[in-house]
């Protein structure tokens, strides 16, 4: 009984903050690992189709992304509702794709320039005509490695 009471003398000690850095670092690391950097805001509807035979797109620095989809509602007044290409932050026409790829390629370091992949993030309601134009432009600038970026799932669910 008195065993516990005995110790209660003296001032109220301050709570040790020695572990605070650990906790902060822990949170920091946690958020560092789970956050995905988003470098450009999407201005188009981008609902990717799904596929089952997919391969992971390893190494972010080797990827150039092209978005395709119909413009979001706030842009529909100026750009219409037909699917458009988005490069970085702005809408573009198919013949600008080649220049964009060359520009992005020039930004990368020398040894990466030959192993770049173009990731096509295309909305599932887009038509192939636009995609064919993009593919033609990519062939013109010799960016032959493409990845049709998709979600994972049963491919037949695309058709509904």
């Amino acid at each position: 009984m008195s065993k516990f009471a005995k110790k209660k003398d003296g001032e109220l000690p301050a709570v040790s903050t020695a572990s605070l850095p650990d906790i902060v670092f822990m949170l920091l690391f946690f958020f560092m690992t789970v956050t995905v950097m988003k470098d450009s805001s999407l201005k188009v509807k981008n609902e990717l189709p799904v596929a089952s035979e997919i391969k992971k797109l390893e190494k972010k620095e080797r990827v150039i992304t092209i978005f395709v989809g119909s413009p979001n509602r706030e842009f529909q007044k100026t750009f219409g509702s037909e699917p458009k290409i988005q490069l970085n932050d702005k809408f573009a026409s198919p013949n600008e794709v080649g220049d964009y790829i060359l520009m992005e390629r020039a930004k990368k370091s020398q040894e990466l320039q030959n192993v770049l992949t173009t990731s096509l993030k295309v909305d599932k309601d887009a038509n192939m005509g636009l995609i064919s134009d993009i593919k033609m432009e990519l062939r013109k600038v010799n960016a032959l490695k493409v990845n049709y970026t998709t979600g994972s799932g049963d491919a037949f669910s695309n058709l509904q």
């Binding site: 690992t33 596929a51 391969k55 032959l144």
Partner: peptide, 15 residues
Amino acid sequence: TTIETDAGLDRMLPP
């Protein structure tokens, strides 16, 4: 936790 990576179908375009 797994960092989400994009995945898709890899294709080579003809030269």
